[in-house]
Design a protein around this nucleic acid. Structure first.
Length: 574
DNA sequence: CGGGTTCGCGCC
DNA sequence: AAAGGGCGCGAACCCG
């Protein structure tokens, strides 16, 4: 018999199917000795099935959860993810986050760098245990126990009880995100290669027999482009050659950006726009992409939880978070199954309303269409202006005719505007800002010039150095201004994912099959579910969104609606 | 020749 | 319709 424990530290063996476990209390202190089990999956299943499921404490999803899948666990504490959150919170942004690095810091030993991401996938010589970066002779489980206790202690040092409990929520949500990411990477997104091929053939012509050859439609456009620009041969993919070809026709371009080309009267401009569209589709999501990334009817990208400083996820390989709209018809539910697609409408302005507690903006955010309500209240019913102004306020836009819109917002929604402007000022002055749950932005660094040096350098106003310093200060102000909103939106989305994942486990034993998350992109999710359960999944989504709102923002009138649609294909849902 | 940078565009 | 924030990625390009 095993002891009941609120937490269990887990470390798989370097080889084989066994591993070591150690029961822990909620304070991280061991409740008993470490035990070795020959069958780690069976041991984990036993814990999960009998008694309250513990919180598994492990080095990382990659090292500990991936080997367990498809066995699922209810909750975990992911040391690598939490180490990142804590380091940033402590003002030590970017230090190595592996178990070995955290352990070495704790013991006052030289800290190893993290291995670059993706290396283990490319090189067989790098086993998962090596990625932990522990010195030889140190038991992984002992390091897990020590680092975990230290992390709990560091969390406890957050003095303000509200901030401390929010940070604990962030830790739990980030860890749950790791579970979701691991599961989604394994399950994959349903992807119909026949539909994808039909779409490609329709747009590009038949797949070229010779690898590397341009598809017919692209070759044809390249020919027309040459003819339109004087017949001289040039590479339409080359920025500089395109500029030169246009110049030879007497058209001086400063850029080959699509939006810029739209205003160019020369007939070659429209051809180039179309060429670029199709060439990009072919290069980024064409047949070669499909060969690499789609197998067995599933697109299997990797997700990197917390891969973006704001807490958004990043993708690794395959452009998981950039599926082009024209290809969304290829995402099709299996026969007898449905896609439940849900996205959070107008999430970021709603997050601003909740963060700033601006009474007027909150009233608008209590409505179904925030921009419409905002327009009625302050912009004479002009929805476009309301949207433009609010987006400009959140992103720090200064150009265009936005000045009067910002002035209106400042007058009508002083608390909301003060909130983003305070964040911008903090960033300009070199300070740091945090999300609602405590995710911390990076300090000024190589990306932004050293502001203090510029400010204190005795430069006269108007010198080039001063201009550059001021420009970079404003750039960082725009970053921190957006950070507080984008990262708090990510907090909510992460809490939502965790809540939804937990609700979906209620259907784990459904005879038709288990509904599962197959896609997550910032403010949008897709659940693949048996048709009979799609309605229940919709309910679970709505409830999870509501739970996340309460967890992250407490009692707020601001709605953060997540609207589910049941569909056969992703394209249909939008 | 390979690695790093720039540009442009896909997504939110 | 773009512009402000955040990304990944591919092709071209630059450099040692």
């Amino acid at each position: 018999m095993r002891p009941i424990a609120p937490r269990v530290a887990l470390a798989p063996d370097a080889y084989g199917h066994g591993g070591r476990l150690r029961p822990l209390g909620d304070d991280g202190a061991p409740l008993g000795p470490a035990v070795h089990v020959a069958d780690l999956i069976a041991a984990v299943q036993d814990y999960e099935a009998t008694g309250p499921a513990p919180r598994w404490v492990w080095a990382s999803v990659e090292s500990a959860y991936a080997p367990l899948l498809p066995t699922r666990v209810a909750r975990c504490h992911d040391l690598a993810s939490v180490e990142s959150l804590l380091l940033a919170h402590e003002g030590r942004f970017g230090e190595p986050r592996s178990l070995g690095a955290a352990w070495a810091r704790l013991k006052g030993l030289p800290v190893p760098d993290d291995l670059p991401v993706g290396v283990a996938d490319a090189q067989d010589s790098l086993f998962v245990p090596d990625r932990l970066r522990l010195p030889a002779g140190v038991e992984a489980l002992d390091a897990v126990v020590d680092v975990h206790a230290d992390q709990l202690r560091r969390i406890d040092t957050i003095a303000d009880p509200v901030r401390r409990s929010r940070f604990r929520l962030l830790v739990a949500a980030e860890s749950a995100g790791g579970l979701v990411a691991g599961e989604m990477a394994r399950d994959g997104l349903p992807w119909r290669t026949d539909v994808h091929n039909a779409l490609l053939t329709e747009l590009l012509g038949p797949r070229p027999r010779i690898a590397g050859a341009a598809p017919p439609r692209i070759a044809e456009l390249a020919g027309q482009l040459h003819d339109a620009l004087g017949g001289r041969s040039f590479n339409p993919d080359s920025h500089t050659q395109v500029l030169r070809a246009f110049a030879e026709q007497g058209v001086r371009l400063t850029s080959t950006k699509t939006w810029y080309l739209r205003d160019i009267a020369h007939p070659a401009a429209a051809l180039l726009i179309r060429y670029k569209e199709l060439a990009r589709l072919h290069a980024a999501h064409g047949w070669a992409w499909q060969d690499t990334w789609v197998h067995g009817g599933r697109f299997r990208p990797e997700y990197v939880v917390g891969g973006v400083v704001t807490g958004r996820w990043a993708g690794r390989g395959g452009g998981a978070l950039q599926i082009p709209r024209v290809l969304r018809g290829a995402v099709v539910a299996d026969p007898g199954w449905r896609l439940v697609v849900a996205d959070a409408a107008q999430l970021e302005p709603r997050i601003l309303a909740a963060l700033s507690q601006d009474a007027g903006l909150a009233r608008s955010a209590a409505a179904g269409d925030l921009y419409e309500a905002l327009a009625t209240a302050a912009f004479q019913g002009d929805r476009a202006k309301a949207k433009l102004g609010l987006l400009g306020a959140m992103y720090g836009q200064t150009s265009g005719d936005i000045g009067p819109l910002l002035a209106t917002l400042r007058r009508q929604y002083p608390a909301a505007m003060a909130y983003v402007e305070a964040a911008a000022r903090t960033g300009e002055e070199g300070g740091i800002v945090r999300s609602r749950l405590g995710r911390t932005c990076p300090p000024p660094s190589s990306d932004w010039l050293d502001l203090t040096e510029t400010a204190g350098g005795g430069e006269a106003p108007g010198t080039p150095t001063d201009d550059a310093g001021a420009r970079s200060a404003r750039a960082r102000g725009r970053f921190t201004r957006n950070f507080v909103i984008q990262s708090s939106a990510a907090d909510w989305a992460l809490a939502l994912l965790a809540a939804l994942r937990r609700r979906l486990t209620a259907f784990d034993d459904a005879p038709q099959g288990r509904p599962h998350l197959v896609f997550f992109q910032h403010d949008e999710i897709i659940v693949h579910a048996p048709a009979e359960l799609a309605g229940h999944v919709c309910d679970a989504i709505v409830e999870a969104a509501e739970e996340a709102r309460g967890l992250v923002f407490g009692d707020t009138p601001v709605l953060l609606p997540l609207v589910p649609t049941v569909a056969h294909t992703y394209a249909e849902a939008k």
